[in-house]
Amino acid sequence: MSNWIPTVSFDAIDDEDVTRFDHAGRTFAIYRVEDRAYASDGLCTHERVHLCDGLVMDHVIECPKHNGRFDIRDGRPLGAPVCVALKTYPTKVEDGVVHIEI
């Protein structure tokens, strides 16, 4: 059974940017790259820092604390000190709102 959750307006996210979304006691990161939405857990797997304060370039989010990097498409770690993948979620945009499937 799928559970699609509306998050934020797609137009509220600049290209190559990230925004924080909190739902049911959890934090998510919602990204916009090349006119497409992506979503992941909102905390770095290294020291649980909010990724919404990080830098997005192409399909990579860089953690603001220790500069660890993840591919936002699949969550795989791309650079030390992160070595644990970031959980990612399917997205869709309906009526201008990004929805994530959790």
Rank of each mutant, 00 (worst) to 15 (best):
V33K: 10
N3R: 15
C44H: 00
D35I: 04
D14P: 03
E62Q: 15
S2I: 09
L43W: 07
D11G: 03
I5N: 08
F21T: 05
W4M: 08
D17S: 15
T27P: 05
F28D: 07
L51R: 08
G54M: 10
C44D: 03
T45C: 07
S2H: 12
L43T: 05
M57D: 10
P6Q: 02
W4D: 07
A29R: 09
R20K: 14
P6A: 01
V49S: 12
S40T: 15
R20I: 01
V33P: 04
I61Y: 02
V18K: 01
S40P: 06
N3I: 13
F21C: 05
W4P: 09
C63I: 02
V8Q: 01
D11K: 11
D58T: 12
H59S: 12
D17Y: 02
T19R: 13
G54F: 11
C52K: 08
V49C: 14
M57Y: 04
T45I: 05
T19F: 00
Y38C: 08
E47Y: 08
H23Q: 05
T45W: 05
C52D: 14
D53S: 13
D41E: 12
S2W: 04
I5L: 08
E62A: 11
R20N: 11
L55N: 10
V56T: 07
R32E: 01
E34W: 11
E16D: 14
V49N: 10
D58A: 15
E34A: 14
I13M: 04
A24P: 00
I30A: 01
M57H: 10
N3M: 13
E47W: 06
R36P: 11
I5S: 08
R36Y: 00
D41S: 12
H59F: 11
F10C: 04
T45E: 04
I13P: 02
Y38G: 08
S40R: 09
V60P: 05
H50S: 15
L43D: 03
V33W: 12
Y31Q: 02
C52V: 09
T45L: 05
I13F: 01
L51E: 06
R48M: 13
V49A: 14
R20Q: 12
D11H: 03
V60H: 06
M57F: 06
G42W: 04
V8D: 00
F28L: 09
V56N: 04
E16A: 15
L51Q: 09
A24G: 08
A29N: 09
T27A: 13
D58M: 11
I30N: 03
W4E: 07
R32T: 02
R48T: 13
D17N: 15
E47C: 07
G54D: 10
C44F: 08
I5Q: 07
T45K: 09
T7G: 02
R20S: 14
E16V: 06
D15Q: 11
R36A: 15
R48P: 04
L43Q: 07
